[in-house]
Design a protein around this nucleic acid. Sequence first.
DNA 1: CAGTAAAGAGACATTTTTATCTCAATACCT
DNA 2: AGGTATTGAGATAAAAATGTCTCTTTACTG
Lengths: 155, 155
Amino acid sequence: MLSQTAEYALRAVVYLAQHPGEPTTVEQIAKHTQVPVGYLAKILQQLARAGLTSAQRGLHGGHILTRSPAQITLLDPVMAVDPIHRIDRCPLNINGHGHELCPLHRTLDNVIAAVARSLQAVTVAALLEDASGAAPLCGAGNARPATAAVALPSI
Amino acid sequence: MLSQTAEYALRAVVYLAQHPGEPTTVEQIAKHTQVPVGYLAKILQQLARAGLTSAQRGLHGGHILTRSPAQITLLDPVMAVDPIHRIDRCPLNINGHGHELCPLHRTLDNVIAAVARSLQAVTVAALLEDASGAAPLCGAGNARPATAAVALPSI
DNA sequence: CAGTAAAGAGACATTTTTATCTCAATACCT
DNA sequence: AGGTATTGAGATAAAAATGTCTCTTTACTG
């Protein structure tokens, strides 16, 4: 669904949110989020370029969030590294029905829009405050029993 | 969002639904759906293996749907060629909190579930009957002016 | 039966995504 | 100033997705 890269970016942002203040090295983030170090470095660069994080070089350097977790939604890192594209014109743009979409692509675009809204509706802070179960990112040692996830049959 | 392959599969199925009865050749479908012929042939094989379509070889052969468009949802072709996977265990399966997901992955799984439900809620027949605008697949010549798509700012 | 129009299957090619490696630039510390 | 820990950037590699090509099999037609 989301790309591997987007997943990694989300993990990194959540981890950073759990470690406010302290600049955190790529290595440390990678270790705790199970993301390949070298690849994560690239992703963190993208997050920095997008203004979500900032990095400090040198000794005691590392990455930090530039905004409070309450002001970062799950959509933000996703758009930074692997943007979700709305369908804004029919991919089969034969005899231009202007910017109107055919029923298929209108439906697909609605799905995409819903995904974007869902991600946008959840802040990173909300994840951290979540009291229903395991700690964010399966934080070692502090997982608690939780309510069962809602089952969706058939897929 | 969805893969190219899934897009192609959806186009093919919609096209077949518009041409009930007649076995339709890969070439004809490809032409009208703007999908590379060779690749489409592979995709149609996958649809056939999944039982959505069946193919007849030889002269006057081609592909047809095995079910009525009313009994095919948009999820069906997608699952046939490029299955949507629910997140059923934390990808960072450190100190196993069983099958519980952490807040991040529970959220992501909910998004995936919503996508699946949305696709499952729309039948191919519904697309064909859609009276709000352009014909399915931008059908040449019969596009009509339609209601504007709902705008989603910020993405 | 021979010819032709179609799908089936598999090898091959290209492009994109994911991942690794190396070296340079920066900042701190003694 | 020199040493070390860190990010930045770019080249390279590997894997997966997408796309092409060729040959075989099947079924209809005359």
